[in-house]
Simulated assay, not measured.
Amino acid sequence: MPAPKDLDSSLSLPALYGAKLRKLRIRAGWTQRELGDKIPIAHSRIAQFELGNEVPTDDLSMRLDKVLGADGDLHDLWVHAKRFPPKDAFRRFRDYEAKATAIHKYQAHGVPGLLQTEAYAREIIREALPWCTADQIEEKVAARIARQHVFARSEPPLLWAVLDEAVIRRSVGGPAVMRAQLAQLLEAAGKANIELQVLPFEAGGHAAMGMSVTVLSFHNAPDVVYLEGGTLTELVKDCREVARQSHRYDRVHALALPLALSLKRIEQAMEEVGACAPYEES
């Protein structure tokens, strides 16, 4: 049996949680499989928690704390770890995205990466990462556009995206860049495997205020959810939490304009790009 991988608890709070979990498990004299059987949960999930690659749900963390006799210390650490999920969440999401058969997505702030033009992507990345050099930005733009190769598969995935109206109204990169981006959205919506809807301003408050939600589905594997909010991201695999986040997406989807009206709203936004006076600092 290979030696257990060394843990560096200084990497992140999830890594610190994982190191604490392993220490408690070893103190109890259990293998990962034995601890998993007591929860119950697959031993592979225990391994991911210990490596800091995943953070358990609230309920699961409390069960781990109780079974391991941590007297609340492990779950107290979870409260902080949950706020700062593993930093490789996007990398793992990208891997899942490449294998998905269906992608259902609500975008709060920007056009989905799978539908971005190169110019729009460059502007988004440049604004989000102002400390990056021009070469670093170009590398990131190329990586984002490369994700669109998923549609070149012999069986491309279904992409059903709900865009907040702010996405199509905020002029990113100026009128020319934004018109080209909106035109690409309209062109994409004409494909059999891509559906676009707009969540209108008049819908008011909704279940995913301030965050974006992506539900990934597969041929022979359970759904996975990817959450984005500000600078924090989280990949959700726990079936119970996946169901909750899918419910969140469904509630937003239910408020969106019908398909035909959504495309008309995008066309209207395209016509109105540049109609407002440019912003000038006083």
Score class of each variant (00 low, 15 high):
206 H>G: 09
105 K>D: 04
44 S>K: 04
183 A>E: 15
42 A>K: 01
190 G>Y: 08
2 P>K: 05
257 L>P: 07
269 A>D: 04
84 F>Y: 11
138 E>R: 06
125 I>Y: 10
73 D>N: 11
250 D>T: 13
238 D>E: 15
78 W>T: 09
248 R>G: 00
136 Q>S: 11
20 K>T: 12
63 R>I: 08
120 Y>F: 15
103 I>G: 00
247 H>K: 14
180 A>Q: 12
238 D>L: 11
52 G>E: 05
190 G>W: 09
62 M>N: 03
9 S>K: 01
212 S>W: 00
32 Q>L: 08
225 V>R: 00
5 K>D: 01
265 R>H: 04
199 L>M: 12
255 L>S: 09
102 A>Q: 10
32 Q>T: 09
57 T>F: 02
249 Y>H: 08
84 F>S: 14
92 R>H: 14
62 M>C: 04
150 V>S: 07
138 E>A: 10
14 P>H: 00
114 L>G: 01
40 P>N: 06
161 A>L: 00
118 E>F: 12
276 C>L: 10
274 G>L: 11
175 P>W: 12
177 V>L: 08
160 W>I: 00
155 E>V: 13
116 Q>T: 05
148 Q>M: 07
83 R>T: 13
260 A>Q: 03
138 E>P: 00
185 L>G: 06
61 S>L: 04
272 E>F: 02
133 T>M: 09
251 R>C: 06
83 R>S: 13
